[in-house]
Design a protein around this nucleic acid. Sequence first.
DNA 1: TTGTAAGCGTTATCAT
DNA 2: ATGATAACGCTTACAA
Lengths: 332, 332
Amino acid sequence: MRPKLEDVAKLANVSKTTVSRVLNKRGYLSQETIEKVEAAMQELNYQPNVVARQLYNKKTNLIGLIFPTVANPFFGELVAILENELYQRGYKVIIGNSMNNRQKETDYLNQLLNEQVDGLIVGAHNQGIEEYRYEHLPIVAIDRVMNQDIPIIESDNYLGGQKATELLIKQGAKVILHTNGPADLDTPAMRRRQAYEATMKAHGLKPETIIVDFNISYEEKQTIFQRLFEEHPTVEAIFASNDVDAMMIYQIAQQKHYRVPEDLLIVGYDGTTLMRTLFPELATIVQPIKMMALQAIEVLEQRLNKQPTENEYICPVTVHHGKTGTKKETST
Amino acid sequence: MRPKLEDVAKLANVSKTTVSRVLNKRGYLSQETIEKVEAAMQELNYQPNVVARQLYNKKTNLIGLIFPTVANPFFGELVAILENELYQRGYKVIIGNSMNNRQKETDYLNQLLNEQVDGLIVGAHNQGIEEYRYEHLPIVAIDRVMNQDIPIIESDNYLGGQKATELLIKQGAKVILHTNGPADLDTPAMRRRQAYEATMKAHGLKPETIIVDFNISYEEKQTIFQRLFEEHPTVEAIFASNDVDAMMIYQIAQQKHYRVPEDLLIVGYDGTTLMRTLFPELATIVQPIKMMALQAIEVLEQRLNKQPTENEYICPVTVHHGKTGTKKETST
DNA sequence: TTGTAAGCGTTATCAT
DNA sequence: ATGATAACGCTTACAA
């Protein structure tokens, strides 16, 4: 059995209160008592029980992170930064990979809010879960609309979509496709699509968005992208809604003997450190992941302290130029 | 304020015990009481407090996962699978990205074991932390030696290293370099190096291992790989200890106008789904991530149930052939 | 079938 | 400077 406060108290011949005081360095204590108690703790190898503290304090120092899956580089990097920064602020994190499973997301939301975590950072792609009343709870969303009361952190998706599209148009492409998730999802990522379509129209071009569900396997995605080329033999450029899709398209294009960038231009979205390191040739729109993580934490702490917050925080995107997005030495 | 059991009890005109029984569907209850209590719960929107239950039950249904960083695709995929499988078994996970920080790893180990988690799956790269006595605790290690008492799950690192090296030798390469972590780390991954060196010697070739610390930034790694080419101008092939390094080497080789595979062969290690999807050309040794995850969970559950376990579980590796590792149509 | 009371391991209030 | 006691919210003997 693990020793408890009482065991230490007995061994040191003092009360539980005194041991607790030594443990938390609170109140008046004689040097003698401190040493006596510390010796007893040493001897028993005493470690305080975290759960008991959580119950009394009504605070767990745990933050829940709910995202589609850390197997995706964007969420992997985001979660890694969140964990790191939260750790420095005294929090540990519970993660839930909600992907493909709305029931799982709902379960996480409910479970974790039963005093199991102090707050929640949510970025899952599933549909709104408005049947629950999360008003004034310490939740922030990343790239995800939950409900009116929950602040949302996002990159400048509209500008990003516009920049990507303009980049391709400037290279002289006319038949430019875009991949994105189902339109009924009310995610900020949908603004990339809106920007793409608006920008195309502004240049007298016909937008065409290919729907790719987030929650399908790589194999199914491959099938969709194969078909994309078959159904659009005249395609000259593709703006993919994320870098993984962009790279998959790139691979398939090569199998089909398209030359990139001569025959086909590709621009992605996300610009994780990993992708820019592994494949710097991929032109992409870079989301400022660290800034978004820090912003999310800052806003979450405001909510935890019951301070007012904005509804929306938009972080700037940048363009990573790579040869998949540039035909010649065109300037931007 | 959140309602508690007592509030429900009062509203329903029963005792706390009865409410608890309804909640947990235990003991004898009249249908009438059940309905009365459930109505009261509904009305108050009652949700049981998880922490209070944890304290009483001395069980948190939480498993700690300590790995270098989920930003790395291998650990990202591993953690994603672990989380998913553990969730199905009724557990949630606390993750700690220990990378670069031994103090942080120690802190996680201590904190989490104070009844905060029921068990731990550890795969961090830091040095042994043997000053702690973790005997018979519900911990399992993945690809990591902790101490004699802790079971370890790993892929067949020796065979993997051997296969990678033989593959390169078969292609006719003589000057074959290997990258790996510092040798003083007692990780199973070091067996890849041992296999590489033994295989080289068995073929009368001179092994040369380049040390790359796990915990450095991509920029620093790039510098090391740049220097690798400068110091070994006659290099014909490289066996990198992971796919990210392999891809970085590939990029640098291209900048330096090596042709891959004609001038330079590259074989990596890990073979995550992500890398095989994004860059199928990369030859690599595939670790069976899912099998390792399932094995780790199975062994952890044995420890949780105080059943005996083996000390070591070795999972088979496979070769992913890609054009970075094959000069012509040589068979393997 | 239901209720009373003790206990899970801490912390804090209020005495002394 | 230290101790007795209640409280955090739940579960379970044991009683009734």
